[in-house]
Simulated assay, not measured.
Amino acid sequence: MIIALARHGETDYNVAHRFQGQTAVPLNARGIEQAHELAAEAARHEWAALYCSPVLRARQTAEIVAARIGLSPVEDPRFMETDTGDWTDLTHDEVRARDPEGFEHYLHADEDFGFPGGETLRQQLDRVVAGLVDVTQAGALPALVVCHRGVMRVAICHTHSRGLDAFMEIEVPNGSLVAL
């Protein structure tokens, strides 16, 4: 394993199916448990570097992992969640009611999908891939990156040559660890 990605623990926004984007939403009690479970799983591997998104929920998760594996997390904004723009803080049901066509496009997201007032999947993919290239070129491998579901989805689409049309098909539970 050269690079692995880990999703932050659960938040109340996850439970409510609310778009949190890049907002500072903290882990809930279950999310803290998941972060400790992730830390235990991460401790079964050797890591040369630990990176994380600077977004609060990912940073909290990374701190718990760091305490277990003995590395300090390096923040990299390229591993931030998708900027969900005008949909940030809204539930899926609220978006479906306000913008049914846009929500349907989201459910069948592809390379052309972009959050109104936010980021496109292509923009996110480009920044995530640039971050992963830099992690690889830094040479401290294997590396663990604590990030978000959207980051993991675009990275998996890219590294598995599936294309962004597979974005919504990829399941990434809170607290999961996936080798690229």
Score class of each variant (00 low, 15 high):
23 T>F: 01
39 A>W: 08
43 A>H: 06
121 L>D: 07
172 V>D: 09
42 A>Q: 10
169 E>C: 09
176 S>V: 11
13 Y>P: 06
140 A>S: 14
176 S>K: 01
136 T>D: 12
130 A>I: 14
128 V>S: 14
159 T>F: 15
84 T>M: 05
32 I>W: 02
49 A>Q: 04
158 H>G: 12
124 Q>L: 15
169 E>P: 02
107 L>H: 01
79 F>Y: 13
101 E>Y: 02
26 P>K: 01
124 Q>F: 07
55 V>W: 01
26 P>I: 00
48 A>Y: 05
105 H>L: 09
54 P>A: 15
34 Q>D: 06
100 P>S: 00
88 T>K: 12
81 E>A: 04
52 C>T: 11
170 I>V: 10
95 V>R: 05
119 E>S: 11
51 Y>K: 04
159 T>M: 12
153 R>W: 00
41 E>Y: 06
31 G>K: 00
25 V>N: 10
177 L>D: 05
50 L>P: 13
28 N>Y: 04
36 H>K: 15
149 R>V: 11
143 A>Y: 02
106 Y>W: 15
107 L>N: 10
101 E>T: 08
153 R>V: 06
151 V>D: 03
115 F>K: 02
109 A>R: 10
20 Q>Y: 08
145 V>F: 05
146 V>I: 14
154 V>M: 04
28 N>K: 09
36 H>D: 10
48 A>E: 14
55 V>S: 09
33 E>L: 07
112 D>W: 03
154 V>D: 03
38 L>Y: 06
44 R>Y: 09
141 L>Y: 11
104 E>H: 13
126 D>I: 01
20 Q>P: 00
126 D>N: 13
1 M>N: 02
108 H>D: 07
100 P>Q: 04
61 T>M: 07
89 D>W: 12
140 A>I: 06
133 V>F: 12
161 S>H: 15
72 S>A: 13
74 V>S: 09
79 F>V: 09
48 A>G: 15
167 F>M: 11
149 R>N: 11
13 Y>Q: 07
131 G>E: 05
115 F>H: 11
153 R>K: 15
153 R>S: 06
55 V>K: 07
65 V>A: 01
142 P>V: 15
154 V>H: 06
6 A>L: 05
117 G>W: 03
154 V>I: 07
71 L>Q: 03
178 V>M: 09
72 S>V: 07
157 C>E: 12
25 V>P: 03
96 R>S: 13
45 H>Q: 14
150 G>Y: 01
146 V>H: 07
144 L>R: 00
91 T>D: 12
157 C>L: 04
28 N>L: 11
68 R>A: 14
155 A>L: 13
70 G>H: 15
23 T>P: 00
22 Q>S: 08
71 L>T: 02
179 A>H: 15
36 H>V: 09
58 A>L: 12
11 T>M: 04
31 G>V: 04
139 G>Q: 15
78 R>S: 11
32 I>V: 13
175 G>C: 02
136 T>K: 07
28 N>M: 08
110 D>Q: 08
14 N>R: 05
150 G>D: 03
174 N>W: 00
92 H>D: 13
177 L>S: 05
49 A>W: 05
147 C>Q: 02
79 F>S: 14
99 D>N: 04
116 P>K: 00
